[in-house]
């Protein structure tokens, strides 16, 4: 069996997810035995025409990005979105809530005409995405699970339940007990509840469970002392492409 050809691409992002992959350290050599990495800008220069698996990081924010992602999709058998920017639009998508011209002015000043841009979208808004590795940065165990599953030729097992499940399984002290708020009850598990495990609240970087009770979540955040506007901002920080029903809450 020849090794699957794997490529990594990045769009609008901090490239933290790619660095996260390089941080796999112990696993990295084993991964290289299983796959041929043919494109990885953070680490190498090679290029190939077709890919068995394309991992795509970052959100789609310019007309050039749209062309490029279509091209990648055409050349890839399986396309996996990596990290909050690629999966949900991520932090980048926050700019969608501000007037586009003003945003360009702030970022590029007088050069703003040189940088055409479109509203920030997750990869799945432009092309078909086969699998998602959520998180900001992406969760490395989940990345490995998907990579290993795809190499074995099986469908990965992705959770659709809350971070609380992992947090309670690890018997972390509930951060609500320490006076913080937490988005863990509605955020998708898969990160191993890494923030609450370290005494931090969950900020929802992995997006939400498929059946999120939005009103219930707002009620919970109100109980935790957040104003409605603050609660909506918190819920949408990483996920402005989800929870669109909260558009326009002032």
């Amino acid at each position: 069996m020849s090794k699957p050809k794997v490529a990594f691409f990045d769009f609008a992002s901090c490239e933290g997810c790619q660095l996260n992959k390089l941080n796999l350290e112990n696993s990295l050599l084993s991964i290289l035995e299983l796959v041929d990495i043919v494109e990885f800008r953070e680490a190498m220069d090679d290029r190939a025409d077709e890919y068995d698996i394309a991992f795509v990081e970052g959100s789609i924010s310019t007309p050039t990005c749209v062309e490029r992602i279509h091209d990648i999709r055409r050349r890839s058998k399986i396309l996996v979105a990596l990290g909050a920017c690629a999966v949900q639009g991520g932090i980048n998508a926050l700019r969608n809530s501000q007037p586009a011209e003003w945003v360009k002015e702030v970022v590029y000043g007088d050069d703003k005409y040189l940088f055409p841009s479109i509203p920030v979208q997750p990869v799945s808004a432009v092309v078909k995405v086969d699998y998602e590795v959520r998180g900001c940065p992406m969760s490395t165990p989940e990345f490995l699970h998907i990579l290993k599953s795809l190499i074995l030729g099986r469908k990965p097992e992705i959770f659709d339940h809350a971070v609380c499940v992992e947090c309670k399984s690890s018997e972390n002290e509930c951060v609500l007990e320490t006076g913080m708020f937490c988005l863990g009850p509605v955020t998708r598990a898969g990160c191993g509840a890494v923030c609450p495990e370290n005494g931090q609240y969950c900020s929802g970087c992995r997006g939400y469970v498929s059946n999120i009770n939005t009103d219930g979540a707002l009620e919970m955040l109100a109980e935790n002392g957040l104003s409605r506007l603050e609660a909506v901002k918190r819920l949408r920080l990483f996920c402005s492409s989800e929870l669109v029903e909260l558009d326009g809450v002032k």
Partner: peptide, 14 residues
Amino acid sequence: ISRKCLGCGTCNLL
């Protein structure tokens, strides 16, 4: 109850 419930599973897990 389901109007408030977030379905997080904490009740099961504990």
